[in-house]
Design a binder for these strands. Structure first.
Length: 192
DNA sequence: GTCCTGATCCTCT
DNA sequence: GAGGATCAGGACG
């Protein structure tokens, strides 16, 4: 079952936690699937949020419909993938930080030039590359094919761990524990 | 226009 | 654990 707008419209922190264990799917040019094991929430009034100082050409997608993609370019090399969350106009989003590769592992390995399964999707820019997500998806909805997230199976509930977000220097922002990850997963990125 | 910084990653040591 | 790559956005003038 593909997660729809009503799911992403919930409170951003709730969405960030609930996305753990869900399956991130990209069907083009061939099926690639990863289980989400790490996310970060970026909320209203948060100095680390790109949308903190209001709408600009870059962060505009964050002010669009929940369930849209916000893909940004960083450090001259990398793209990171977010899904817009919460009520429209708040400028909130969840950053997908790490996946456990499930399907399409060989194409992920070739796109990443990396054979180690644990290093295929262990970071926001790495997973964008492994999943083959183009920047053209920026601002588009992810509630339908070819790019979407599927609800988790409830066979086993993952234990959720939280921490300070990665790569944030702002002191006020560092006081917020808005990084969430599966406590038992070997596929998460850095541990602070 | 210039300057600085960054929601990162990789390569060393 | 530290440092560099590399460029767009945003602040400033």
């Amino acid at each position: 079952m593909i997660l729809q707008k009503d799911f992403y419209e919930q409170d951003t922190i709730v969405v960030a936690k609930q996305l753990l264990g869900c399956y991130f799917v990209h069907e083009i040019p061939e099926l690639a699937v990863g289980k989400i094991v790490e996310t970060e929430a970026y909320i209203e009034g948060d100095p680390a949020n790109h949308a903190y100082k209001g709408i600009t050409p870059r962060n505009k997608p964050m002010f669009g419909q929940s369930g849209n993609a916000y893909i940004y370019f960083i450090y001259g090399k990398y793209y990171c993938f977010n899904v817009v969350t919460g009520k429209v106009g708040k400028g909130e989003a969840v950053l997908i930080r790490a996946l456990e590769p499930v399907t399409g592992i060989s194409i992920m390995k070739s796109r990443r030039h990396q054979d180690n399964l644990y290093k295929l999707c262990n970071g926001p820019a790495n997973l964008v590359q492994a999943m083959g997500i183009p920047k053209e998806y920026n601002g588009r909805s992810i509630t339908d094919r070819p790019l979407y997230i599927v609800k988790k199976s409830f066979t086993k509930q993952e234990k959720i761990q939280s921490s300070v977000r990665i790569g944030i220097s702002n002191e006020e922002a560092r006081s917020l524990p808005l990084r969430f990850y599966s406590a038992s997963s070997r596929f998460v990125s850095n541990i602070p």
